[in-house]
């Protein structure tokens, strides 16, 4: 493992200033489950590690029926996975988090870390995009908020500017007639990177599908929305033929690559199958 310098900023302001001063070689450390592996495997060149666990106020988790779900940058995947409110109101997020790594990994890993790593296959991102979640960002010039959907610019790349730190996530409250689902396709049940991930969040409302958002993981340079598929289903009574049409649209919206995990053609096929299944589950779900 290449040596690095270790820092423990006590405040967001200090962390932000350090990030600005240290430049591109500095990385934020929360759970460390990705970062340390990447340093050891020499996948990432890191000269400075900033442990943000000494900063107060980043480990809060709250849910309110009017406000929705909010959690800080230090909230672990395991905490989200086992939180009663998340399990009840955000089954798509709960499922996705429960499929991340293993229990040992989830006890350390943070959901914000999973987001900031910006892997196209990250499990927690599609359900947050489907649920229209936003990120709170602290930077040298103050606070700003960015939709998760707009956060990514490429594999491992985000809109974060120098000195900026993601401090938490906000997920809007679920509608009374919401339905949510996440399906991960992988070669095994744990310790697995998604070959395809599909998240659905919908509001049945009066039409059966008043509103719907579909997010796809591991089939493009970033997690993406399947907007054409959504448009086909929004406001319509969904039958199998319509669902098949939407699944086809989602396949066409994906731009997967071939690698040792799966071919592009297979990934695209799975987008179709999993979109159909995930919408089906979300339609059946009773909050």
């Amino acid at each position: 493992m290449r040596p690095f310098e270790y820092h423990e900023p006590k405040s967001l302001a200090e962390a932000s200033a350090l990030l600005c001063a240290l430049g591109a070689g500095a990385s934020i450390f929360a759970g460390g489950t990705d970062l340390l592996v990447e340093i050891k495997e020499e996948l990432r060149s890191v000269s400075h590690v900033l442990n943000i666990k000494k900063i107060e106020g980043l480990d809060a988790l709250s849910f309110d029926k009017a406000e929705g779900l909010s959690f800080g940058a230090l909230v672990t995947a395991r905490r989200i996975e086992t939180d009663a409110a998340v399990l009840r109101h955000y089954p798509n997020l709960a499922t996705a988090v429960s499929l991340l790594g293993s229990i040992q990994v989830r006890n350390r890993a943070t959901v914000v870390g999973n987001i900031c790593r910006a892997s196209p296959s990250a499990d927690t991102i599609p359900p947050l995009i489907a649920d229209a979640a936003t990120l709170s960002i602290h930077g040298p010039t103050g606070e700003r908020s960015v939709a998760v959907e707009d956060f990514f610019t490429g594999p491992g790349r985000t809109v974060l500017k120098a000195g900026e730190i993601v401090t938490g996530v906000h997920v809007p409250p679920p509608a009374a007639t919401s339905g949510k689902a996440y399906i991960k396709h992988g070669r095994r049940k744990a310790m697995e990177l998604a070959t395809v991930g599909v998240a659905v969040s919908l509001d049945r409302g009066r039409s059966g599908c008043d509103e719907i958002r579909i997010a796809l993981g591991a089939v493009a340079a970033t997690p993406i929305r399947a907007r054409k598929a959504e448009a086909l289903l929004r406001g319509r009574a969904i039958d199998p033929a319509l669902l098949a049409e939407a699944a086809e649209a989602a396949m066409n919206e994906s731009t997967p690559i071939s690698n040792v995990r799966a071919s592009a053609a297979y990934r695209r096929d799975m987008v179709g199958v999993l979109t159909r299944r995930a919408v089906g589950i979300a339609l059946e779900a009773r909050p």
Binding site: R188, K189, A190
Partner: peptide
């Protein structure tokens, strides 16, 4: 898996060499 163009190993790790685990 070996890259048949140059002999390089394509999945020399447990990330992409998939052994079944207890959950499977």
């Amino acid at each position: 898996v070996i890259d048949l163009t140059n002999g390089r190993s394509l999945n020399p790790s447990f990330v992409d060499y998939k052994m079944p685990l207890s959950m499977d």
